[in-house]
């Protein structure tokens, strides 16, 4: 097991390098440069001033040299300085050690994604199981409509509807942001409740769209399992229905879901970009969106590298989970 883990970890290195290289090249393919924001269509900028700025950012060098320079810094975990006018270190923006943990961008995004993933699984797995065991029943049909509605509805639109309902008509939840104006003056429990209120809608919206996928996978995987001989055996020896489904069936049916969990990481990070924008949540997704618009290469590269890394870790965790759940894999 240990050698297997080690091998997987080592394999991650070239993959990650490949990811960064491709990201770097694709980023350069997009027209425009980071200096554009300052210089584009600004009559006060002379061509010489433009060149000076480009030199300042190291943009006058060939792409591969730029990549190599970037790589040399990144192995020392130095992601460089942002190209925006504030010129802050990139890591400082994502993980600002001067702020409390809860206000650091990476943590916010991580927290919301973990919460919504947990929520997705808590809701989708029971739905999937019931749909499978009561195939073609009314419940199956209703839940199918329900999860596909969530899947088909544009997240930003659904978010706005919920904001109107809970923020204005019922006036029970905040509309956007990640803390209230009077946050600083609240007691600790008040602060926790304040954060929770701000999290409810974003977590709900980001999980609602994910329900369809997982519950449908769960349903079909369960249907598959129920048809197996060992389930028939279990039933034949007179086990109660619940034991058959939840002990013998569920464990086998969960295997493909574990793989999907690992693969869902990039989707979650992508989703963060949209709902953080709509809810005005100061997370990594919002920063990513702004950075792309500003062509802030170091910032974009840093977020892509972190995203790539998280995806690889997600895959590995899925593999480990898989081998824990399935003795057949462990044996190999």
């Amino acid at each position: 097991m240990l050698t297997y883990l080690l091998k997987r970890l080592l394999e991650m290195i070239p993959t990650l390098i490949g990811i960064t290289l491709i990201s770097f090249l694709i980023l350069q393919l997009a027209p425009g440069k980071p200096t554009d924001v300052l210089t584009e269509m600004n009559p006060k900028i002379t061509p010489e001033a433009r060149e000076r700025l480009e030199k300042l950012y190291g943009l006058d060098k060939p792409i591969m040299t730029q990549y190599w320079m970037w790589m040399k810094r990144v192995v020392k975990l130095d992601f460089g300085e942002s190209f925006t006018t504030d010129r802050r270190p990139v890591m400082d923006k994502i993980w600002d050690t001067k702020l409390p943990l809860i206000d650091r961008r990476l943590f916010i995004t991580f927290l919301i994604n973990v919460l919504s993933t947990v929520l997705i699984f808590l809701i989708a797995i029971p739905i999937g199981i019931s749909s499978a065991t009561h195939q073609n029943s009314l419940f199956d049909k209703i839940s199918t409509v329900f999860v596909f509605t969530g899947f088909a509805m544009p997240g930003f639109w659904f978010a706005l509807l919920l904001m109107m309902l809970f923020g204005i008509y019922l006036d029970v939840l905040p509309i956007s942001g990640f803390k209230s104006m009077e946050y600083e003056s609240l007691s600790l429990s008040g602060q926790i409740w304040d954060r929770t209120k701000h999290l409810i809608l974003p977590v709900f919206v980001s999980s609602f769209g994910g329900l369809a996928g997982i519950s449908r996978y769960m349903r079909s995987s369960m249907l598959e399992v129920i048809k197996q001989d060992y389930i028939m055996t279990a039933r034949a020896k007179g086990l109660p229905d619940a034991t058959v489904i939840y002990k013998h069936g569920l464990r086998n049916a969960l295997l493909p879901i574990i793989t999907i969990l690992g693969l869902s990481v990039p989707g979650l990070i992508g989703g963060s970009v949209i709902f953080e924008q709509v809810f005005g949540i100061p997370g990594m997704g919002q920063l990513f969106y702004m950075s792309v618009m500003m062509r802030d290469y170091p910032m974009v590269m840093c977020i892509l590298t972190i995203g790539g890394f998280l995806t690889l870790v997600g895959n590995m965790v899925a593999d480990i989970g898989y081998s824990l759940a399935d003795p057949r894999i462990r044996a190999k």
């Binding site: 109107m164 204005i168 956007s176 709509v278 809810f279 005005g280 919002q286």
Partner: peptide, 8 residues
């Protein structure tokens, strides 16, 4: 960042 949210 979102104008519709701001209006709400």
């Amino acid at each position: 960042p979102d104008p519709a949210t701001m209006f709400l």
